[in-house]
Nucleic acid binder design. Sequence first.
DNA 1: TAGACAAGTGGACAGCCTGTCCATATAGTG
DNA 2: CACTATATGGACAGGCTGTCCACTTGTCTA
Lengths: 207, 207
Amino acid sequence: MASRGEPATERPLRVDARRNRERVLAAAREAFDRFGPQVSLAEVARRAGVGQGTLYRHFPTRADLLGAVLADRIDVLCRQGAELAATGPAGGALAGWLRLLLVHARVNQGLAGGYLSDTGLSERYPVADCHVPIMGMADRLLAEAQQAGAARMDVTSEDLVHLVVGIALATARSADVDQADRLLALALDGVRVDAVAGRSRSTEARS
Amino acid sequence: MASRGEPATERPLRVDARRNRERVLAAAREAFDRFGPQVSLAEVARRAGVGQGTLYRHFPTRADLLGAVLADRIDVLCRQGAELAATGPAGGALAGWLRLLLVHARVNQGLAGGYLSDTGLSERYPVADCHVPIMGMADRLLAEAQQAGAARMDVTSEDLVHLVVGIALATARSADVDQADRLLALALDGVRVDAVAGRSRSTEARS
DNA sequence: TAGACAAGTGGACAGCCTGTCCATATAGTG
DNA sequence: CACTATATGGACAGGCTGTCCACTTGTCTA
């Protein structure tokens, strides 16, 4: 995820360096959208009009570049969540935001997938750093929904996010554009408080 | 998926060719397990003790190789499903098999992911060929569960499979090994027939 | 069993990609 | 303006994919 908050304790980048960094970022955004997250980094450098060395100086690995591109998309998503929370009822805000999250996850499926698998397939913190703000927003919206009695108390925000991400991943290449939405609705049916009415969910369906 | 059913209309492989094919397959199985689906095909050939040309002759693309390895794992899974159907109650068979599917999807997540993304990121049939047997088994188990009154009528087998695959993908690198199971239970809560009790699921939670 | 030919093999090779290195160019500073 | 730390670009080493083809080996027929 590189430098989200710009520690600024270190001397700032030289202006030409910062300009090049932005160029690379812009080129990467466009190239990832156009050719997918597998696009050659040499190609990105070419499109940015910089040398490969410059690209690698700013983003030592492909994951760093993917992460940087993801980061501001996530910013937008979280701002939207805050707005929903401020303007609507708690249950609706949660459901609405999960829908936005679903769209985000579908659109950026490739990016995030590439990011994750480059970040290290193993031995890493379960969800990548860049998902921290997402988890924060999920925490907040779920807590509010639970307080309003609109969501089961035994559901965690991690569950919800994983469920949505999963739906996005699983349906990413489905031709049926509505399916993701239907799946989300199905899953949300299991989340709402009235769905549980005193039964001990989980394993009792085992066999 | 290459030649699952061996059309046999074409002359069979020469014995040495068949032997080499098996060797490559065995080496691939092991290498994929050990090093992940990104392992170099040259490495697979080396481990199989054949030349690269031989590997590519039998499996022209990485996806072909991944697909072949996946195919027999899927065979096993479907046989297990048939057994469950034959021995237990319909609702339990469905739930139990979905759990097996979840395990399968988690274990082979990398394989399937690699398979899908190599098969072609775009313009292809939504779910890859190799999933046809899985869908068939899901169809069957769901239909039986629905007839037994153990599953909602408005759920499709595609929904279920996607949900499970999604959970597997989303939790594949989670440190919490139980989470996938909990998510599945959560999702199944939305599937069971008593969860719906005369409400029109889906979008009414919108805002 | 021998000969002939189609089928199969292996490894060299072309082309592409990643990530490093360093001689050169340039912003920032006094 | 001069000086230095920073930044740049492109050549390069190393690795991977997928193709090609001269050579080897099953298989079939007589």
